[in-house]
Amino acid sequence: MTVAKSFCDGVGCSQPGLVLQQPTHTFDHSKPILKRFPLILYLASFGSMGYENCLLFESLVRQGYIVACVSSIGRYPGEMTMKNADLMEQVTDANQILNRLKHDSRIDTTNIGLLGYSWGGLAGALLAMQRQDIDAVVSLDGSEVYHYGYTKSEDLDFGQIVTTPFFKKAVLSAPYLRLESATNVKTSKKDSTYNFLSKVRASKRVIKIDSAEHQDFSSLPTVVRSSGNCSVPKTYRVIATYTIAHFNRYLKSGTSATK
């Protein structure tokens, strides 16, 4: 209830009880289809869990994907920070989960995609640079494209991440799509941006969604607004459409991306 209240307060709509009663399209103990499906591994944003993008997961499942989520909790006892060691804890968790899932008979191990939001976008990029079995990457306003100048401590933490021996040498070889919010130039304090795109050696595409703020890349604002019968912008639908199109293009043969 406390978490639901924080969502309602942030969006300025609905009530906690209505959010918790909002129906989903997910069914417990549903009978699985006996065939193999491509896998999408999701890496959650800073300190968050997978439910932050539950609507997108349901859309991906309807498209014929299996979705697995990797929480962002950092090192024991789970106090997430921007330190490299906490970031790499999520990457290590994702590696272990992916290695385990590759033994699941329902997984098409020849078609694996990574999806990350915010800090999870950076974790996903690191995971994809470590492995050769990733076939497509989508970053939802991911922190791998970092804007310096907001706080000195965060700048220092990110600087330590990108100057590690691994990061300096590694490249991303999987097709990469970045969906990003529009920065308000008048209020932005950034003085420079880390150019992650220089590390992408495969097809790369950046789409700026000018109606989106950073929090709009989570499904939670849409869930809250829907539960309170408030106006729901089309922004999240656009984000989901581009995400699905990218994965369909590279993980499903014979399927072209949305124009």
Rank of each mutant, 00 (worst) to 15 (best):
residue 60 L to C: 08
residue 62 R to C: 12
residue 62 R to T: 09
residue 62 R to M: 12
residue 63 Q to D: 13
residue 63 Q to K: 15
residue 65 Y to M: 06
residue 65 Y to L: 06
residue 67 V to C: 08
residue 67 V to L: 03
residue 67 V to P: 02
residue 67 V to K: 01
residue 68 A to S: 11
residue 70 V to H: 02
residue 70 V to I: 15
residue 76 Y to N: 08
residue 77 P to V: 07
residue 77 P to M: 07
residue 78 G to Y: 05
residue 78 G to M: 06
residue 83 K to I: 04
residue 83 K to Q: 15
residue 84 N to Q: 11
residue 84 N to K: 14
residue 85 A to C: 08
residue 85 A to H: 07
residue 87 L to K: 04
residue 88 M to E: 15
residue 89 E to C: 14
residue 89 E to L: 06
residue 90 Q to P: 00
residue 91 V to L: 13
residue 94 A to T: 07
residue 96 Q to P: 00
residue 96 Q to V: 02
residue 99 N to R: 13
residue 99 N to S: 15
residue 99 N to I: 07
residue 101 L to Y: 09
residue 102 K to L: 14
residue 103 H to C: 03
residue 104 D to C: 15
residue 106 R to K: 10
residue 107 I to P: 01
residue 108 D to T: 01
residue 112 I to Q: 02
residue 113 G to H: 04
residue 115 L to E: 09
residue 115 L to N: 08
residue 116 G to W: 05
residue 117 Y to R: 09
residue 117 Y to E: 09
residue 118 S to C: 14
residue 119 W to C: 04
residue 122 L to Q: 10
residue 124 G to Q: 06
residue 126 L to R: 12
residue 126 L to T: 13
residue 126 L to H: 11
residue 126 L to A: 12
residue 127 L to V: 07
residue 128 A to R: 03
residue 128 A to H: 03
residue 128 A to P: 03
residue 133 D to R: 06
residue 133 D to H: 07
residue 134 I to Y: 00
residue 139 S to H: 03
residue 139 S to I: 02
residue 140 L to V: 07
residue 140 L to M: 11
residue 143 S to T: 11
residue 143 S to Q: 13
residue 145 V to E: 09
residue 150 Y to I: 10
residue 153 S to D: 15
residue 157 D to Y: 14
residue 158 F to R: 05
residue 159 G to F: 07
residue 160 Q to I: 04
residue 161 I to E: 11
residue 162 V to K: 05
residue 163 T to N: 15
residue 163 T to F: 06
residue 167 F to C: 01
residue 169 K to V: 01
residue 169 K to C: 01
residue 170 A to F: 03
residue 171 V to H: 14
residue 173 S to A: 10
residue 175 P to I: 08
residue 175 P to L: 10
residue 175 P to D: 09
residue 176 Y to L: 05
residue 176 Y to S: 04
residue 177 L to H: 03
residue 177 L to W: 07
residue 178 R to K: 15
residue 178 R to M: 15
residue 179 L to S: 09
residue 180 E to Q: 14
residue 181 S to I: 03
residue 183 T to M: 08
residue 183 T to F: 06
residue 184 N to M: 05
residue 185 V to P: 00
residue 185 V to T: 07
residue 185 V to W: 00
residue 187 T to H: 11
residue 187 T to V: 14
residue 187 T to L: 14
residue 188 S to G: 10
residue 189 K to A: 10
residue 189 K to L: 13
residue 190 K to D: 13
residue 191 D to H: 12
residue 193 T to R: 06
residue 193 T to P: 02
residue 194 Y to M: 11
residue 194 Y to K: 13
residue 195 N to L: 05
residue 197 L to R: 02
